[in-house]
């Protein structure tokens, strides 16, 4: 009987730098069953992930939030309300003289499913739906940006060593010693004023860009440090030596030899960073330096609702619960992704 197994082992050995580590892990995980030997590390990770029920559920929740964000205009059309109209102020029967919803439970009704925002009387559900967009756009953009910066600087420091490593390392030390929350509050107005000329209307995209820049500025160091350590270890490995001997340049070594070995920590870090940026963004808005009116934003909603804790608790309830579910699902998903990629780490 002829067996094609030799071909796969040939494939592995032909690219020593790329997947050998993961392949080792994978084969250690399921060595006995020859049927699994042909699976790529990606597929193995996917199978492990599907076995993790928490991970699947939180992935569904995350997917739901992403879908709601993408389909926000469609939801608005079907539901018949938009996030900008001041329903409560246009119809005097909805809000009291001092701006509280007339109907019980924060004005929840067939027309306004999640009730009305006290004061302006905007629809809470539409505010929430469009608020997801704000959070997601900023969090995803920040995650991407910090990942790119972290990967570039981390690998550069680890691989190049010497002065470059020293310099980047000190920059990371300095930035990490900053009290981040205070730094964010202080830099937001500066960044905004750099980007806009006084007397002109602040464009809608500007707060997004400003928050992304400010969050990215202090968000990349963790990943860079991890990657520096890993790159430092990889640098001494035989396959790098071999690549060097065959005359590969540093760019080729970094991108073709080292980087493919770092996808696990990068992905894990990025998925865990995303919910952190969601809360950080909400925190900035809560403190009044984030995305400004009229763009719907969860942090600002929660800040505003805190004033109504005793008089209109419903208004706090919806953004509060939505925020908890959203961040929790993302965090659990991040954990599951890590477990799936790197089963030895946590078991």
């Amino acid at each position: 009987m002829t067996t094609p197994t030799g071909a796969t082992t040939d494939g592995d050995t032909s690219r020593p730098g790329s997947t050998s580590d993961l392949a080792d892990n994978a084969s250690a995980d399921a060595p006995a069953d020859p049927g699994f030997r042909g699976l790529s590390p990606g597929k193995l990770m996917w199978r492990r992930f599907l076995r993790d029920r928490t991970g699947v559920v939180s992935a569904c929740v995350v997917l739901f939030f992403v879908l709601v964000a993408i389909l926000a205009p469609v939801i608005s059309m079907i539901y018949g309300k938009d996030p900008q109209t001041h329903y409560g102020q246009n119809d005097p029967t909805l809000l009291t003289d001092s701006g509280l919803p007339v109907a019980p439970n924060g004005g929840m009704s067939g027309d306004f499913w999640f009730g009305l925002e006290p004061g302006l009387g905007r629809d809470v559900m539409m505010q929430l739906v469009y608020g997801i967009r704000t959070s997601l756009i900023i969090a995803v953009a920040t995650s991407l940006l910090t990942t790119v910066i972290g990967v570039a600087l981390g690998i550069a420091a680890g691989y190049l060593g010497g002065k470059a490593d020293f310099f980047i390392g000190r920059v990371i030390d300095v930035l990490m010693s900053f009290p981040s929350q205070i730094f964010l509050i202080a830099t937001m107005p500066v960044v905004t004023s750099l980007l806009v000329t006084p007397g002109e209307k602040i464009p809608e995209w500007l707060p997004f860009v400003a928050v992304t820049i400010v969050l990215s500025l202090l968000g990349w160091m963790g990943l860079a440090r991890i990657l520096r350590g890993t790159a430092l270890a990889l640098r001494e490995r035989e396959f790098i030596e071999a690549a060097k001997v065959t005359g590969a340049g540093p760019m080729r070594i970094i991108f073709k030899e080292i980087l493919p070995n770092l996808w696990t920590p990068i992905l894990v870090q990025a998925t865990l960073a995303l919910p952190a940026f969601v809360t950080a963004e909400a925190g900035l808005s809560y403190l009044g330096v984030g995305v400004s009116e009229p763009v719907p934003d969860w942090g600002r909603m929660i800040a505003g609702a805190a004033d109504y804790l005793r008089t209109d608790v419903t208004f706090l309830l919806f953004p509060g619960i939505a925020m908890v579910i959203f961040v929790l699902a993302f965090n659990l998903l991040g954990d599951s992704v890590r477990d799936a990629f790197d089963p030895k780490a946590n078991r």
Binding site: L100, P101, V102, P104, N105, D312, L317
Partner: peptide
């Protein structure tokens, strides 16, 4: 509690 009472609209 998830409930809060309504508010009078008399003055409005």
């Amino acid at each position: 509690t998830a409930c809060s009472s309504g508010h009078s609209n008399e003055s409005a």
